Lab assay of single mutants.
Amino acid sequence: MATDAALRRLLRLHRTEIAVAVDSAFPLLHALADHDVVPEDKFQETLHLKEKEGCPQAFHALLSWLLTQDSTAILDFWRVLFKDYNLERYGRLQPILDSFPKDVDLSQPRKGRKPPAVPKALVPPPRLPTKRKASEEARAAAPAALTPRGTASPGSQLKAKPPKKPESSAEQQRLPLGNGIQTMSASVQRAVAMSSGDVPGARGAVEGILIQQVFESGGSKKCIQVGGEFYTPSKFEDSGSGKNKARSSSGPKPLVRAKGAQGAAPGGGEARLGQQGSVPAPLALPSDPQLHQKNEDECAVCRDGGELICCDGCPRAFHLACLSPPLREIPSGTWRCSSCLQATVQEVQPRAEEPRPQEPPVETPLPPGLRSAGEEVRGPPGEPLAGMDTTLVYKHLPAPPSAAPLPGLDSSALHPLLCVGPEGQQNLAPGARCGVCGDGTDVLRCTHCAAAFHWRCHFPAGTSRPGTGLRCRSCSGDVTPAPVEGVLAPSPARLAPGPAKDDTASHEPALH
């Protein structure tokens, strides 16, 4: 009773807030009518008042009428009001819900409408889902798969039609296919003929059939049928067999079959498995989609049935006599038709004709302190090069084509190399640097090759510096006499390219 009084008091307290929050009759008014909170006449009256005075006034009048009803109607109103779709449509209802007392429970059932309790003993237990329907569909599909699609060729003596089998029958139906081979029951999904010589313990000319048996419980189990008994694959494991010639990621696949039913060829011909030897223990289905393919039931050349050999690369099948050149017997292992072999060759040939990528240039590290003349020119003028003790990398590039010797140069053309002071002394051009340390401070000019250098860098042994005729380390061993002091540049003949010694390969005349 306390809860009923509290709900009535809360409705009177929030009546105006609810009326202002509800700006549309749908969905709240319609939901109240659906849950029998508002009768039909009051529903029509509220809609009429909404058209006349507006939605807030109409709902305020409806809530005032609701306060005169019993506690069950008020409880049902609060339940409908706080439904998710009403809270989404009328956003101003959320503060009312947040301020609702926590001790007021809106989930209690309506009085007088409590459903009768059902004894637990009368409640049926839930049924577990079964796979009976899938099993029945598999039974119905198996006879259809064994139905012949056409008439065999005159040369083929193997013609068999499976008798119709009602689904209610649980007995196995067997077809006489000759040579002791028996087909599987209607619940078998796949059958492959297997030679009895590969099964340990088999006697006589009995041949087993590799099947997948579907049981009534819905589970499946792969086994071997020899005669009327089934054997699990673990009985046929043979770890010492060295003649297993397995197909790549293979499961067994029928390579020879008669049109209309699988079996042995007439005249004692023995149908073979995809792999010879003992049956392997793992009978998992292969991951290669080509091995799941269903080959055609007629020859791809003459479009006739009979004894066919199936290609492992495509769905086509052929007569042995229709092949070019014809085959006398079934080859062992994987067999592919000429079209598949030709496609494989065409895929391999473009790969062989692809040009080989060019090898990157060989990189040879230079000892610290040495650099090529090109690196000396590329440096920024007026700045010493940083990191001189790091190992430089010199790339061996292809030799350029031989060019004509340089033409003779006048001494005026070499004027930018040297600057003559007032006393006739050779001065260095701006930006000249030593080729060893890279520093341009207090550098000297070689009178023979006009290269800038430090005496301490080229002659670290402490050799005394002569007063005139300074030469760098590369030119100090040259027998050519030094030019007379005061000459602007060496003779043009000295600039012609010539053979250089091994220790002077990195010091070429550089223009500054």
Rank of each mutant, 00 (worst) to 15 (best):
P148T: 13
N244G: 02
Q157W: 02
K42V: 07
R247T: 08
V192M: 11
K50T: 04
T151S: 10
L128F: 14
T232F: 01
L75G: 07
W78E: 05
E40I: 02
T68D: 00
E53V: 14
A258F: 13
W78D: 02
V38Q: 01
P233N: 15
F215P: 06
K243R: 11
F77L: 01
R9C: 00
P143Y: 14
A271N: 11
L81D: 04
D238C: 13
L28W: 00
P95I: 09
F59C: 00
S234C: 15
S241G: 08
A140Y: 14
V123S: 07
H14Q: 02
L28P: 01
R174E: 06
Q44L: 06
I96W: 00
S241M: 11
L81R: 01
A261P: 11
E17G: 01
G268C: 13
S156L: 15
K165M: 12
G155W: 15
T147Y: 07
A6N: 01
G251W: 14
N179G: 10
G251T: 11
V226M: 06
A186I: 01
A142M: 09
L106K: 04
D238H: 14
P254T: 06
V38L: 02
S234F: 14
I74H: 05
D36H: 00
L13E: 07
I224E: 10
A186V: 01
A141N: 04
D98G: 00
S239L: 14
P143S: 09
R15T: 03
I18G: 04
R272I: 11
L62W: 03
L13W: 04
L67A: 02
R110N: 05
L47F: 05
P115M: 09
W65K: 05
G112N: 06
V123P: 06
A58W: 02
A140Q: 08
V20S: 00
L11W: 03
P124G: 13
A33P: 01
V192I: 12
L158N: 13
D76I: 03
K253G: 05
P56M: 00
P116H: 12
S241L: 12
S195H: 10
A186H: 08
P129Q: 06
R174S: 07
K245I: 02
D36N: 11
P143R: 05
E45Q: 12
I181N: 15
E216D: 06
L175S: 06
S248P: 14
Q94F: 02
A170N: 13
E270V: 14
K102E: 13
C55A: 00
G201S: 07
L10T: 02
K102V: 08
R113T: 09
P143K: 03
S185W: 05
H48C: 06
A58Y: 01
M184T: 06
S196Y: 07
R8V: 01
E88G: 01
F236W: 14
K222R: 11
P266Q: 09
P252A: 10
D36A: 03
S220T: 08
